[in-house]
């Protein structure tokens, strides 16, 4: 779905506002753009696994964000590297 170097945006979605969920996408990157570093492989979707539902395997990506894009006071070129499932990513 995505390859190393792709610019991606984390979906600005807040399913926890609707009902009980188990999600592995931190709040602080939602709606922000980052870059795919690599695909880490396919893993059972934790959003289903946590509720003992059949969990489809989904690609997991290592995505890099510039610190300056998240917190204005940060040293801009410092980075954050976060594992994010493909279904949380979109092309900007």
């Amino acid at each position: 779905m995505f390859v190393a170097g792709d610019t991606v945006r984390v979906k600005d979605e807040w399913p926890e506002a609707v009902g009980p969920v188990h999600i592995r996408t931190p709040w602080y990157v939602r709606g922000l753009e980052g870059q795919v570093v690599r695909c880490l492989g396919d893993f059972p979707n934790p959003e289903d696994l946590a509720f003992a539902r059949p969990a489809e395997r989904r690609p997991l990506y290592h995505v890099r964000f510039r610190k300056g894009a998240i917190w204005p006071e940060a040293k801009p070129d410092d980075e954050l590297l976060v594992e994010i499932f493909g279904h949380w990513l979109e092309r900007p």
């Binding site: 997991l60 590297l81 594992e83």
Partner: peptide, 15 residues
């Protein structure tokens, strides 16, 4: 040091 980049790795999922 300022010349060294800091990379924070947030361990959010399966690794």
């Amino acid at each position: 040091p300022d010349a060294v980049k800091v990379r924070v790795v947030d361990s959010t999922a399966d690794y």
